[in-house]
C-alpha cells in the first residue's frame, strides 16, 4: 500500500492545518470557561455557606440551577430586546474569553490585547442593560443605573492597573505579558514587581464581581435584585451562564496580569480559584455600601494606591 501512504501524506503536507487548531481553540476556550465558571460559582456558594456555618449546595448545584431555569415550561418575555439582551450577555462573554490566553491556547489574544478585552467585557453589560430596560420595570432600571455607576467607580482603578502593567512590560499583548512574567519564575511575576498595582487590582476585582460591599445594584430587599427583577426561566438562566463566564474572566485576567498566567493547567486553575476566593471571602463579612460611598471609596483608596504604583513603575 505504498501509494496510499504517499497520497495521504502528500495531501496532509499540502493542507495547512493550523487554522483547524485555531478553530478548535475557539470552541474549547468558551467551553472550558463555562465549566471552570461553574466550579467558581460552586466555590463561591460553598465559601458563603461555610462562613455561615452551613453545609452549602451539592457539587452540581450550579448546573441544576441552569438546567432547571432553561427547562421552565412557561417563560415571560417582555419583547425582542429583552431576549436579544440575554443573547448579547452570553455571546459577549463567549467572545471575550477567546481573548484570554490559557495554558496551551492563545486563541485570539494576539488580535485583541488588553484594551480590546476590557471593552469586549462591556458588551455583555450593555446587552444586559438593554434587556433590563425593555422589561419596563423601574427596579431594573434603577439597578442598571447603579451598576453603571459602579462600573464608573471600579474601572478607574482598573484602567490605572492596566496602564501600569502594560507600561511595565511594554506591551498590550496578553501572550507577551504572560511570557514575560514566566521568564524568571516568581521574581518576574506582576505581583512581585508591582505589588501596589496588584493591591489596587484586587480592590477593582471586588467591584468588578459585584460582591459585597459593592452590590448595591442588586439590593434584593430594596429594589428586588435590580437588573434581575423581571428575569425568569431561561432569561435568569442566561444570566447564571453569564455569571460563570464573568467570574472566569475576572479571575483569569487577574492571574494573567499579576500571577504569571498558567504554566500548566494545574497551577493555572489553582491560581484562578485562589484569586476568585479572595473577594468572596471578603464579601461575606461586609454589609453593603451606598452608591456614592462606593464611588467615593473607589476613587480614593484603590486609585491612590494605583497611581502610587504607576509612579513606581514609571521610575
Amino acid at each position: 500500500m505504498d501509494w496510499l501512504s504517499a497520497v495521504s501524506l502528500d495531501g496532509l503536507a499540502a493542507v495547512d492545518f493550523r487554522w483547524l487548531g485555531l478553530v478548535l481553540e475557539l470552541i474549547l476556550m468558551p467551553l472550558i470557561a463555562f465549566v471552570v465558571g461553574l466550579g467558581l460559582v460552586l466555590m463561591l456558594r460553598k465559601i458563603a455557606a461555610r462562613l455561615q456555618r452551613r453545609v452549602g449546595p451539592p457539587l452540581l448545584q450550579p448546573l441544576w440551577d441552569i438546567i432547571k431555569l432553561h427547562a421552565k415550561e412557561t417563560q415571560t418575555s417582555h419583547g425582542l430586546i429583552h431576549e436579544i439582551g440575554i443573547v448579547m450577555a452570553i455571546g459577549g462573554y463567549v467572545a471575550a474569553v477567546t481573548l484570554l490566553p490559557v495554558p496551551g491556547m492563545n486563541g485570539l489574544a494576539a488580535q485583541g490585547g488588553l484594551i480590546a478585552l476590557l471593552y469586549m467585557t462591556m458588551i455583555p453589560s450593555l446587552g444586559l442593560a438593554l434587556g433590563v430596560g425593555q422589561c419596563a420595570n423601574p427596579n431594573g432600571s434603577i439597578g442598571i443605573s447603579r451598576a453603571l455607576t459602579a462600573m464608573l467607580a471600579y474601572d478607574v482603578p482598573m484602567v490605572i492597573v492596566i496602564f501600569g502593567v502594560a507600561f511595565h512590560f511594554g506591551s498590550l499583548n496578553l501572550v507577551y505579558l504572560i511570557a514575560a512574567q514566566q521568564a524568571g519564575g516568581i521574581a518576574t511575576w506582576g505581583i512581585v514587581q508591582m505589588p501596589l498595582l496588584a493591591l489596587a487590582g484586587l480592590f477593582a476585582l471586588q467591584g468588578m464581581l459585584g460582591k459585597q460591599p459593592f452590590e448595591i445594584y442588586v439590593a434584593p430587599a430594596e429594589i428586588a435584585t435590580g437588573p434581575m427583577v423581571e428575569m425568569g426561566g431561561k432569561f435568569l438562566g442566561g444570566l447564571f451562564v453569564m455569571q460563570c463566564f464573568q467570574l472566569y474572566t475576572a479571575g483569569v485576567l487577574y492571574v494573567a496580569l499579576f500571577l504569571g498566567g498558567g504554566e500548566n493547567w494545574l497551577t493555572f486553575l489553582f491560581k484562578v480559584f485562589v484569586v476568585t476566593a479572595i473577594p468572596m471571602t471578603i464579601a461575606m463579612v461586609f454589609p453593603r455600601y451606598r452608591t456614592e460611598d462606593m464611588v467615593r471609596l473607589f476613587w480614593k483608596w484603590p486609585t491612590m494606591i494605583g497611581l502610587l504604583g504607576i509612579a513606581f513603575v514609571m521610575n
Binding site: P30, H70, T74, K234
Partner: peptide, 17 residues
Amino acid sequence: GFGVGALVFYGFGGRSR
C-alpha cells in the same frame, strides 16, 4: 459568540410568551 448565545437561549430554553 452572539450565535452561540442565541443557540443557548433559543435552542435550549423553553418557549416564551
